[in-house]
């Protein structure tokens, strides 16, 4: 990895990178809110450059991280930093408010040490995943049998579920499922899921 801090640099790159993968749209603007230790030491630890580097698609050992703020400018991505108190979260946490061509998304991620991270919120959905395993995030209709349909499709492709977190804000509306798998997921599995009537959105991230 590129120094100087595994939590504040490498972890921050991962948060940015995963946010980019989940957002998936072309990024025009990112409002980055830094909390706790991130807010206090971000310049010295290169957290600003790391988060932006991740958003630009750089991985933790990419030497372009050092110049990511400049590269963002060249790519016409507007970046704004704010210091925030996000309450009740890990001391190394950032909230990324992303604006693209057609949509906006807010993602909160924490860097929990030794370059391990956790994405804890996407828009209004509480989630919990590390990006250390192939991970699917599926938004689906909240109704009986829906989880069964998703897991059956995965089972048909011999994909074993290691961990699963389901969440919904309101009964009968949209459910969110985080599914961590033992194996990588092919595009046709994702298309298969996306083509189901009651599945609204599928996002997939792979470990690096």
């Amino acid at each position: 990895m590129i120094g100087p801090s595994s939590s504040h640099t490498a972890g921050a790159v991962k948060v940015g990178y995963l946010a980019r993968s989940i957002f998936k749209d072309k990024l025009n603007k990112a409002d980055i809110h830094l909390h706790g230790s991130f807010a206090r030491t971000f310049k010295g630890h290169g957290t600003d450059r790391a988060l932006v580097g991740g958003l630009l698609g750089f991985k933790p050992d990419d030497e372009r991280i050092r110049n990511s703020l400049q590269i963002a400018k060249e790519r016409n991505v507007e970046i704004d930093f704010n210091l925030s108190d996000l309450r009740g979260v890990h001391p190394n946490t950032a909230k990324l408010d992303l604006v693209g061509e057609n949509k906006e998304m807010s993602i909160i991620g924490s860097s929990i040490g030794g370059s391990r991270i956790k994405i804890i919120q996407i828009d209004d959905y509480e989630v919990d995943f590390s990006g250390e395993m192939p991970t699917l995030w599926v938004l689906h209709k909240d109704e009986p049998g829906e989880i069964g349909i998703i897991t059956s499709i995965l089972g048909n492709y011999k994909l074993n579920i290691a961990r699963m977190v389901v969440f919904r804000n309101k009964k009968g509306e949209v459910g969110s499922a985080i599914i961590e798998l033992d194996h990588k997921v092919n595009d046709y599995v994702i298309s298969n899921l996306e083509n189901m009537d009651d599945i609204y959105q599928v996002r997939y991230v792979e470990p690096f």
Partner: peptide, 18 residues
């Protein structure tokens, strides 16, 4: 020192203690 200069290190357990 290399870590402080944003060079490449192996984070173990962390970069600050690499």
């Amino acid at each position: 020192e290399i870590n402080a200069c944003m060079g490449k290190v192996v984070a173990g357990p962390t970069a600050g203690a690499s």
